[in-house]
Design a protein around this nucleic acid. Structure first.
Lengths: 155, 155
DNA sequence: TGATATTCCTTAGTACGTAAGATAAATTCC
DNA sequence: GGAATTTATCTTACGTACTAAGGAATATCA
């Protein structure tokens, strides 16, 4: 169960590679969002709605997640709703609140645009053993959690 | 030379974790840029200038890298120059061109803001063996190259 | 030389964000 | 129960950063 030999690298190398990857993704998402008639933050919010999967997401939740004001969320939801990605419904339990849910077909619509890039990444993964993918996923997951914690606590 | 056991995961899991990490970093960079009086694209451009390390970077190069118009680059360079991050100098060989170079101390100034997050990631890495870091760096590097190629060719 | 291309900048318009406050609903405290 | 406060979303005015289109200076090629 030995993986292929990979060039040796330090933690700094890994972080540098991550930075570069993030920077490129950052530019790419702008194009990606534009293709869907949305902004980058719109996509962040929509992803959060999808991730919640049925659990009621409110406008305030999205403001916290995307680090924008609640005023900006109104605009974000206007675009997402106008584009048919989400629906706003009043919360029956607290009528000040707005419950945002994803339109079922919308996830596929986003996936269609994202698909080709996703496929390339999946192909890249075939070059790695299950053990290696496990390490990779573990690290990415923990780095993601770390980033979110840092973002919430230090900003 | 066995690493710790990591939870098994599929390529889809890895890509999902990457997506989440990128989304969080995307939001974080906005805060990060604001702390420096810059925009996210300003940082992308400055990183490119640093990366070039002495090789002459032109305004047009930056437009290509950040996927913005040359008009926008003028504004980006104005901010970077006003903030003391880069200097613009006319190219002696082609006087239409502008050569952009980093101000030496500026890299450290950015690093100072980035530092705490970097440290957390470095700490996370201590939990992984050299082999695992090698795999990680390899994958991140290739994914970065893949993303850049895709961005250039398909947009 | 003259025509065309390239490179950066300028201008006008647009999109997306913030800040401050309005509105409506829920909660808390007599 | 009613008044005061807090909470959640939306509205308005405004700022910043981008695009699109075009201008000026320089380079390149027939």
């Amino acid at each position: 169960m030995e993986g292929k030999p990979r060039p040796t690298a330090s933690a700094a190398d890994a972080i540098g590679a991550l930075d570069d990857l993030v920077a490129t993704n950052l530019v790419g998402r702008q194009e990606f969002a534009r293709n869907l008639g949305l902004s980058v933050k719109d996509l962040v919010c929509f992803a959060h709605v999808l991730e919640a999967e049925g659990a009621p997401v409110t406008a305030g939740d999205l403001a916290g997640r995307a680090h924008v004001t609640t005023g900006a969320v109104t605009g974000i939801l206007n675009r997402l709703e106008r584009g048919g990605f989400v629906v706003r419904r009043p919360d029956p339990a607290d009528r000040r609140r707005v419950r945002v849910t994803a339109v079922p077909a919308a996830a596929e619509r986003v996936q269609a645009v994202y698909g080709p890039y996703y496929t390339l990444l999946a192909e890249l993964c075939t070059d790695y053993s299950p053990d290696e993918i496990a390490v990779l996923t573990d690290w990415l997951t923990r780095a993601g959690a770390l980033a979110r914690t840092y973002l919430e606590e230090s900003c």
